[in-house]
Design a protein around this nucleic acid. Sequence first.
RNA 1: GCGCCCUUCGUCUAUCGGUUAGGACGACAGCCUUUCACGUUGUAAAGACGGGUUCGAUUCCCGUAGGGCGCGCCA
Length: 476
Amino acid sequence: MPDPIVTRFAPSPTGFLHIGGGRTALFNWLLAKKLGGKMLLRIEDTDRARSTKEAIDAILDGLHWLGLSWDGEVVYQFARAARHREVAEDMLAKGKAYHCYATPEELEAMREEAKAQGKPMRYDGRWRDRSEADRQEAAARGLKPVIRLKAPQTGETVVEDLVQGRVTWANENLDDLVLLRSDGTPTYMLAVVVDDHDMAVTHIIRGDDHLTNAARQTQIYEANGWKVPAMAHIPLIHGADGAKLSKRHGALGVDAYRALGYLPAALRNYLVRLGWSFGDQEIFSTEEMIAAFDLKNVGRSPARFDFAKLENINGHYMRHTPDAELMAAIEQVLPHIEGGPDIAARLDGGLRAKWLEAMPGLKERAKTLVELIDGAKFLYASRPLALDDKACDILDKGGRAVLKALLPRLEAVTQWDAATLEAAVRAESEATGQKLGMLAQPLRAALTGRSTSPGIFDVFAVIGREESLARIRDQA
RNA sequence: GCGCCCUUCGUCUAUCGGUUAGGACGACAGCCUUUCACGUUGUAAAGACGGGUUCGAUUCCCGUAGGGCGCGCCA
């Protein structure tokens, strides 16, 4: 039996958990679940200037909301700096790395020259084989060295990627990267490799913006004689216009999707199908997703984020969520949406019961929780109801007369349920020869203030006799 | 500029070299119907381009074009 696998999600806390990060976390989580392994969480906070506590909280909150759990304690990369330094020193001792005293000015000059010659900026290795005397001389001048990897200069570096396939780089195209900065802090490249190795990570799943890094990291693994983990570089998610996701399109934090009224299960389902497929199946329960997931079926081309499809999937999930569960989801999202807190304040036992009763009709008509909450307004609206334009129109164009005519029949109804009320209204319809819709729309306008709503007789029943009749009298 | 990657309906995708190129979202039309939805039926809609290889290419190879990512003592 092979050792259980270990995946990891390693965001840098410089902003919220964006949608691409969410999908990366999802893929790592799915693979770990599928193969009975673990998913670790590492916060890459070595950039002290840009890392914030708020971002860390947002990321953890986002993962929680998405339902993606990690195993063990969160690893903070910055806390491991001493270990990273130790590895750099060790590599130095083994001749796998060297001190470089090139100044920022020298590096800048190299950059300029490379640019002028139309070549890529590559460190020229000028300190690769310097003598101890040269080093001492530089140190005497007060220069602080960085430690650079003594990377192979010939041959090639190969990444056997589980998604991208075999990707090869000529080593002459890769320079001697910095492992340890002159102030003694580790670079990202070193920290990632050391951490993944120490954390016994077996599978690295990340965005393919890291593909080039994978080559350089492979060199670090090899210099240390460490086993290179399996890697899977998944394509990035683009905005609807095909360009990189930016704030203008879908580059929202996952918390924004919560505020937009999406269900975590729906977002997960949408995300997993972005770049991954399993035949013609579109909807996956968590269990099905775990069972079906396989990196082999992850595509290599970037996918565009499509809100229309997300909405469709979310609608599907809402319709298939039990009423009580949906009610709980609504109560949880209320604090996060505009106007939500006011509704939450009014949500007492009575309203909750009414809402639950109306839920079947409500959830079928909404694609997001926000829409559902909006559609439920008639439940707690206070009289006289504010009417929207279409409702006004219905009432102004003969609707009031219809209500006046219907009122006696409705007042006569003592058994206030949908079937009885429907019978009463149909009787009026047959008596006057008006189509049912001619009667239903004015009633809808009076009872809900809108031209659309759940079935009108269900609305009657939920609102109750006194309130219903009062709302109709208000408009008659 | 250099390196790497990508390219099937508008979008997400299926296709083990031989298919009327399938599904889903969206669009449009019909049905259902008290509104809106849901549901349901149907229609339109794709292999970037050019060369090869092959009896046969969406599928394999090369090139072109377009797109993406990377090229820091950032992560």
